[in-house]
Structure formats: structure tokens, C-alpha cells
Design a protein around this nucleic acid. Structure first.
Lengths: 264, 264
DNA sequence: TAGTGGTCTAGACCACGCT
DNA sequence: GCGTGGTCTAGACCACTAC
């Protein structure tokens, strides 16, 4: 019942992918949970038992369980075994940030029709979001995103100069800006999202083929790189019925908030 | 520079509230970060330095930092010091679940106008969400929620019998069902949220005073207790411009997903 | 190469849920 | 009272960043 014993040749052992032990344990437990090995709402083995089973320390087991906990797969409470919560639909960070990656993960064909790309002075809100000095410029891009040819979302992204220069040089038919940026060494590691409803403006209506004033689901997102520097400030507006956002949270970890009003 | 040395009398030491050491460290660091002690995008001291400073082990410091990490306050990367990310607006789990608690935290006066409360057989979707057997009954409640008297949201909550019986016995003018349930020993510890846009139906229009077909921000939520048993399945519909939801996530912890379509 | 966070271990004690 | 997860310690080694 031990972990896959790294059956690669004696070579550079552990040079595999998601190397960390606790990730392997987490992956194995996730598999067991989703295939129903512990039952619908069953109890997991004790941490000590799992540690022995996998041949690792209890600390490592706890690290693995923390992953499943934050994914909403299991509960945790002092005094009782952990309980299977549900088959949480997990999504990687990059599937969430990249429309292209997301579409492909569903087997759909993503498209991006460039509407405009300009370099211009940043306004006050943009300067604050991207942490730029007064007088700084930004690259502003408007694109219509499609799934299998059908309009789904209007994407308005503002990049700081360093990033925008890279995007501006991409061929107009490149679908995934995010992937291109990654290949140029721009990393996305943290994001703040705000979700609400807005009425379509004239441009939205023209691009999406809806009526002006009709409702759209809006996601605003500020993304930063590993050094904490903002690399993207985007506002996406979806046609109703095309997407929904879902979040899991708990007493222990609550990354979701509800806010009054709507500072634009 | 040590932690507040638990200056209570020798009595039952540590019987305070948020007792855990790492929580005190986290609270102290959060304070330092939000008051700008490390600068706008500054670097934190090394884990070892913090451990010495607080007189705790490195493991405890790491536990504290993990809290701030998941709140989106700091980054973390192998090889470099942690960086201050931003002043994340944090919200407690109960502020998120309870309209009443949320409203009061903003200094507004919450209201709840009961529209209907019925006991009836659960439909298929409700049975699945609340994990009930075929033929089971539920309590279904529709309420108009207000802030300072103004309509904000229509709340449609379905409770399993065990919980619904308690709610049904509450006086009609009780504002916070959540708080009452907590006092009856019903605990809310985990929740799954799905956020999207829908058109107002006739009932929504009547209660909210909007037109039929006008857009509403919808939050559907399934809440469970510490044993993993569903205790609530709610569908809240907000007037546009009254609220927004926000989430922080990162490569390390991603509790947010985007989904196609919209299974009702 | 020095410093940093990431991972892992082994052990200890405690608070809590149950029976 | 027993078993459980929660907290904390002390130490070790590694992978990565930055100089």
C-alpha cells in the first residue's frame, strides 16, 4: 500500500514532476475519495494510520490533508475522524486565469477577436491597480472571446508597459496572450477577483450582439507575479448563461467576501 | 518583542479566546502589515528571524504565515523573502453566511420580511443538495431582505426537516435565522457557492420592486455542518449594484472555479 | 556561495468528541 | 477514558534566488 516506489531508473531520483511527497499522498487520497473508497459521506482513516500506510510521518499526512481540506473534499475537526464532504470540482489556477486554457479543458475551441489595442496614459484607477506612478502609460486591449465561434465575453485588459510591450508585438491572431506571456517569463501567481452584474454599454452590445443595457456577469481581476508586482488588470463581461463562478470555503479558510456597492 | 505574555492571573492559563500561538503571531503580523510596518510592497523578515523575535519555533511561524498567505496578504516563494501583497479585505465566515451579521458589520440595519414558509416534499435537486432520501420533506422559506428598509435581495432557503422545524417555530419577525440556529446548536462550517446572473421571475419582481426579466446577481449556496451533513440550500438573488463578491486565490491555493453553462 | 522558503521527520502534549 | 485531530518543538536536508 506504499506510494508508487518511483519506479524510474536509478538516475536522478525524484526529478519527476510534482515531486513533493505530500502531493503524492494528496493525489492518492483524492483518487480514493472521488472513487468512493471511503463511501459517500464516510470517515477517513486516522492520520496516524495513514502515516503508517504510506510510510511517511504524520506531519506529511497532515500537509496532504490540508490540500484536500482547502479543496473542500474533507472536513476536519478535533476529536473525530475526517469526513468526506463531496466531489469538489477543482480547477487549476491557470485554467481560471486563461480563457483559452479553460475552453480547451472543456473540449471547446476558444477564439479571440482583437477589437482594439492602444498605448495611452493610465487613469487614476489603473495606476492604483497596477501600482504605477502618475504619468505612466499602459497598454489597453479589448477583445471579444468566443467558444466555437459564438460570442461569450468581452475582455478588457490593461497591462503595465513592461508586459504590454510583449503583448503588442504578438500577431493579431494569437489566441492565448496568457500562454505567450508565460513563455516570455511573465508569471502569474496571485489574483484578486471581484464578481458582480453590470449593464452592457454600447461597445459591449456591438461586440456581443446583445442589446445595450442588457445584463452581463462581470469579473474584475488583478493579477500579480511572484514578486508581488501587478502584471494585469482585467475586466471581463460574460453573456448571461455562459458561465458561473464557484467557490468553496469554510470556517477555517475563507477566501470569499461579499461587499456592498460597487466602486467602479 | 515577545508576544503579549498572557498577563492574566496564574489561573487557567491560555483559557482565552483565539488561544493558539500561531494565531497570535498571525494577528500581530497582520497588524504590522496593514499599518505598513514593512512598506507598501516590502519584504518580511526571514522565518527564522520571526521565530526568534516571537520566541516560537519556525514551524509555528510558518503556520502563521500560511494564514496570511491564504488571505492574500503576502506572497511566498522558495529562495526569497516574502513580499507584502496588499491590504486584503478579510471577512469572517459568519459575515459571509449571515445577511444580518454582514449588514451589521457595515453599520446598516438588516431586515427580513417573510413571504412564505411551507413544508413540502423535496424535489430531485433539493434531495441531492441536502442528501435526502426519496419522499423526504423540506422546509422552504422565501424572504425579502432589506438594508435600512430598502429591498436588496430575495432569499430562498430550503432546510432539511431537522433544521426546518427549528426555523418554523421562530417568530416571524426574527431577522437572523442563522444566529437563532447557531443558538440551537446547528453549526455552519463549510459552504459551496455558485455565482451567476439570472432574470427576475414574477415573484422576484413583486418582492424587489423591479421589472420581470431584469437582471439579478444570484448566489446559490450549500452549507454543511461539522459532520458533513447539509443543513441549508439557499438561493439568493440580489438587485444589481447592491453587492459584489470578491475572492483571492493563488497558484498555491485556488478555491475559485469558472464553469460553463448553468445547471439550475 | 549565502540566504531563503519548502519539505520531512520524530516526538510531545493538549482539547475535544465520543461512549 | 480513549481515540482523534490541533498545536508546538527541534532539527535536518533540499531547491531555489540573488549576489
Amino acid at each position: 500500500m506504499a506510494l508508487e516506489p518511483d519506479q524510474s531508473a536509478p538516475g536522478p531520483a525524484g526529478t519527476e514532476r510534482g515531486a513533493a511527497l505530500y502531493r503524492k499522498v494528496a493525489a492518492d487520497l483524492r483518487e480514493a475519495i472521488t472513487t468512493g473508497a471511503f463511501g459517500e459521506a464516510g470517515r477517513l482513516p486516522a492520520e496516524g494510520a495513514l502515516a503508517e500506510q504510506y510510510g511517511v510521518s504524520r506531519g506529511t499526512v497532515r500537509q496532504a490533508l490540508a490540500v484536500l481540506r482547502s479543496d473542500g473534499l474533507v472536513t476536519s475537526r478535533r476529536g473525530t475522524r475526517r469526513v468526506v464532504l463531496g466531489n469538489a470540482r477543482v480547477q487549476s489556477f491557470s485554467e481560471l486565469l486563461s480563457f483559452t486554457h479553460w475552453a480547451r479543458s472543456m473540449g471547446e475551441e476558444p477564439g479571440g477577436i482583437l477589437d482594439s489595442l492602444v498605448r495611452r496614459p493610465a487613469d487614476a484607477a489603473e495606476r492604483e491597480q497596477l501600482r504605477l506612478e502618475p504619468g505612466a502609460e499602459v497598454y489597453a486591449i479589448v477583445r471579444l472571446r468566443t467558444l466555437s465561434g459564438a460570442p461569450v465575453m468581452v475582455e478588457r485588459t490593461v497591462y503595465p508597459p513592461r508586459v504590454g510591450e510583449l503583448v503588442a508585438e504578438l500577431p493579431a491572431d494569437v489566441v492565448s496572450h496568457t500562454e505567450q506571456l508565460r513563455e516570455h517569463g511573465i508569471l502569474f501567481t496571485d489574483a484578486d477577483h471581484t464578481i458582480d452584474v453590470v449593464a452592457a454599454n454600447a461597445e459591449d452590445a456591438r461586440l456581443l450582439g446583445c442589446r445595450r443595457g442588457s445584463p452581463l456577469l462581470r469579473e474584475r481581476r488583478r493579477t500579480t507575479d511572484p514578486t508581488g508586482t501587478p502584471v494585469e488588470w482585467s475586466q471581463d463581461r460574460y453573456l448571461p448563461g455562459t458561465v458561473a463562478f464557484s467557490v468553496h470555503n469554510s470556517l477555517a479558510t475563507s477566501a470569499l467576501s461579499r461587499h456592498a456597492r460597487d466602486s467602479d
